Amino acid sequence: MTNSLSTALLDPATRPQVVDALVQLAETEVAAKKGLSGTVVKTAFAGAKKAGEGILRKAANALLPGVARALDPHYDAAAGQPFGAYLSAPARSGQVADELLAVADAKAASVQGNPLGKVYGTVRKGAKGHVEAALPALGSTLERFVR
């Protein structure tokens, strides 16, 4: 049995499937967005996809180690509870979103001038609410890979 979320997600035999699942999750979450903020997110997402072949997969792969490490303590604390429900509980969803955005912010800082960094900058201001809304699906997506 794997002892940590990050060990399971970053295992070379599992990581490609995790990355694929995260890209699919992003596609699903973005497609479900509504309203003006949803239009902004959809436009930015489409722009990111046009920036280069496989850019979303590359971004998911690059972010995965930081995301996995940020979520390790939460996975441990969930102690067998459904991970998505644990992450999205009102008492912790804001903190978890902030931790995940810190990972993305650090990565975005290293790609300034890159089209993906520019797209990230356009949606960052309102990102916390979108991340919080995606936590149930993120938790259940990642939990599938832990044995």
Score class of each variant (00 low, 15 high):
1 M>I: 04
3 N>S: 10
3 N>F: 03
5 L>N: 09
7 T>E: 15
11 D>Q: 06
13 A>G: 10
14 T>Q: 10
18 V>G: 07
18 V>E: 08
19 V>I: 12
21 A>Q: 01
21 A>W: 00
23 V>W: 05
25 L>G: 09
25 L>K: 09
30 V>K: 04
32 A>G: 09
33 K>T: 13
37 S>K: 06
39 T>N: 13
39 T>A: 14
43 T>Q: 07
45 F>L: 02
49 K>N: 06
49 K>W: 00
53 E>T: 12
54 G>R: 07
57 R>W: 06
60 A>Q: 11
60 A>G: 04
61 N>G: 11
61 N>Q: 02
65 P>E: 01
66 G>S: 02
66 G>Q: 03
66 G>T: 02
68 A>I: 05
69 R>V: 07
70 A>C: 06
70 A>S: 13
73 P>K: 06
75 Y>I: 06
76 D>T: 13
77 A>G: 03
77 A>F: 01
80 G>L: 10
82 P>Q: 04
82 P>A: 07
84 G>H: 10
84 G>M: 12
86 Y>H: 15
90 P>T: 08
93 S>Q: 14
94 G>M: 08
96 V>H: 07
100 L>Q: 03
102 A>Y: 04
102 A>N: 11
106 A>I: 01
108 A>P: 00
111 V>I: 15
115 P>W: 13
115 P>I: 11
116 L>K: 03
116 L>W: 01
121 G>E: 12
122 T>R: 15
125 K>H: 12
126 G>Y: 13
127 A>Y: 08
130 H>C: 00
130 H>F: 10
135 L>I: 03
136 P>E: 05
143 E>C: 10
147 R>F: 06
